[in-house]
């Protein structure tokens, strides 16, 4: 145990190095615009200003609303599609499900930029570019295959005896799904929903291609607009970035074990 504090010290140092960019984002967001081009830059916000945050409140609030709406919509759509399918794959196991699982694995490999191109072609034809629900559909493509696969593995771990007992009690397939298997795999639902939220919240590719002219645009485009301005005002950009990072940070604090479960699923077999 004597060497333990030494490890802790090294661990703290490594974490500090790793998180330096995050610290820097916060530092710059508090730096007054006048000091922004100073060389070398101030390591600490000596005279912090909240100007950047005031501008966020002023200019970016609608973008936040849209992002929240899109992210929640994506969660609902993803879970509504993935949960029944996962139940079937895990518990009903119909013939011919193998190719479907294969398709889901391959679907995760498709680069977002290609999906964006294809969806753009379709959306233009149908005249549904720049709509919020169009963006929800596009964002869900990132999350659905992952959600089905992770929910399947969670639901597969619900004992078959429990499912059988429900059937003997006269519950139909849907009843068994809704009242037995779904509640029992609550952790899986949270993990899938969490990642769907995070991915939709962070999406830039689909927003830039499918919603760049819309009246309701997500936050990632709000930041992109700021960067595109010729008089790049970095303290406003970084203030928006800090606020945009809040959901990720909150999720990490509140739901860390779900995050770890999501990352390792598929990569490590327990």
């Amino acid at each position: 145990m004597t060497r333990s504090w030494w490890h802790t010290a090294v661990g703290l140092l490594l974490t500090a190095v790793m998180l330096f960019p995050v610290y820097w984002m916060v530092n710059v967001s508090l730096t007054p615009p006048g000091d922004m081009r100073k060389s070398p830059p101030d390591l600490f916000p000596g005279n912090p200003t909240f100007e950047g945050y005031a501008r966020v409140l002023d200019e970016q609030l609608p973008y936040f609303g849209t992002s929240l709406l899109v992210a929640l919509g994506t969660v609902v759509l993803t879970l509504a599609l993935a949960a029944p399918a996962a139940y079937s794959l895990a518990k009903l196991r119909p013939r011919g499900r193998g190719p479907l699982t294969f398709v889901l694995l391959v679907a995760q490999m498709i680069p977002g930029i290609i999906m964006a191109l294809g969806l753009y072609g379709i959306y233009v034809k149908l005249g549904i570019t720049n709509t919020v629900w169009g963006l929800v559909f596009a964002d869900s493509t990132i999350a659905v295959p992952f959600a089905v696969l992770i929910l399947t593995s969670f639901m597969a771990s619900v004992p078959d005896e429990v499912v059988q007992a429900a059937r003997i009690d006269g519950a139909g397939a849907f009843r068994t799904f809704w009242s037995v298997v779904l509640p029992a795999s609550c952790n899986g639902v949270v993990t899938a929903g969490l990642f769907a939220f995070l991915w939709a919240w962070s999406d830039f590719v689909f927003a830039a291609t499918l919603d760049s002219g819309g009246s309701m645009q997500p936050l990632t485009l709000g930041i992109y607009r700021y960067i595109g301005n010729n008089n790049q005002e970095w303290n406003a950009i970084m203030a928006t970035a800090v606020v945009a990072s809040v959901p990720a940070t909150a999720l990490l604090v509140l739901a860390q074990r779900f995050v770890a479960a999501g990352i390792t699923s598929g990569a490590v077999k327990d």
Binding site: T15, M18, L19, P21, V22, M25, L198, W201, S202, F204, T220, I223, Y224, A241, A244, S245, A248, T249, L251, L252, Q256, V259, A260, I263
Partner: peptide, 12 residues
């Protein structure tokens, strides 16, 4: 804490 960079939106 090491997870933070992975969870941040890429644009951030």
């Amino acid at each position: 804490l090491f997870l933070v960079p992975w969870l941040l939106p890429l644009i951030v």
